[in-house]
Design a protein around this nucleic acid. Structure first.
Lengths: 137, 137
DNA sequence: CCTTGCCTTAGATCCTGTCCAAGGTAGGGT
DNA sequence: ACCCTACCTTGGACAGGATCTAAGGCAAGG
């Protein structure tokens, strides 16, 4: 993700300490953090960073297609830095944690035109739900 | 859904005017209403019904498997009375409206065991996103 | 028809996320 | 190297969705 910042700057993104830290946090563990978790981690390196800035930055990264926003059943949204390789998610119904998965098959192909009801379909999201090893223990 | 109330009463559900009205609202148009929409419609027949009761009743219907709860990307959850026939959803990214769809193929079968990461997977949800005919117009 | 325990209610409260006005700063221009 | 100015950041207010609470209401078994 080091080139991410470079790429964005070329597209006219003003590079600030706050944005750098947010990007670095996302680049880190490749987990799926909530906005508040991103804020907490960013604040370890930049204590004055505000929640609003984290939200703003995440929103823009999502907008620019650099980060994926995944909603998790009414809990806080999670942010997935793995935006460039198509994949789906495995969600723990108990604790809300997630993992990336790459199922076989193409669900978009599984939607016959007769089932489109006039929608212009552009995206499919597949969510597998279950109990994660930690919660099962 | 007329037998729904019967079924629930047999399982020890106390039958009240409020619960009856909520069930009737859901049974109606087979659309996907939000909790507030359910409340609004219920209030047309039972003006004193409170939001809390609608939420309580919906939560229980979901818990008992009689109604499906579908989250829609940070907007209000929607409630789907079509809980007994497996299907998936088509969601308008602009207005949040939904339709049921029945794609071919079984996404659960598309998740190889090597991709389960120790989760006990019990459910798959497929969400097709796009623009509905009304919003495209 | 009475009693009991489950329901309902209004309103407070919580959680996520967005908005706002005021002050700060990156970085192009000179 | 320094200034400007447009863009960013900030904290706190705000909004929407959903849950919780304490007090009173009522279904339905006895």
């Amino acid at each position: 993700m080091s080139d991410l910042l470079e790429r964005l700057r070329e597209r006219g993104w003003r590079l600030t300490a706050q944005r750098r830290v947010v990007a670095e946090v996302l680049d880190g563990d490749h987990v799926h953090l909530t906005a508040d978790e991103v804020h907490a981690r960013a604040a370890r390196r930049l204590p004055e960073i505000s929640r609003a800035t984290v939200y703003n930055t995440l929103r823009e990264l999502v907008h620019r297609g650099e980060v994926l926003e995944v909603s998790t059943d009414g809990r806080a949204k999670r942010y997935d830095p793995n935006a460039h390789r198509p994949h789906h998610h495995l969600l723990c119904s108990r604790c809300g944690s997630m993992r990336d998965v790459r199922p076989t098959g193409d669900p978009l192909a599984d939607l016959p035109p007769s089932q489109s009801f006039g929608f212009t379909v552009s995206e499919v999201e597949v969510t597998y739900r279950g109990i994660c090893p930690d919660c099962a223990a």
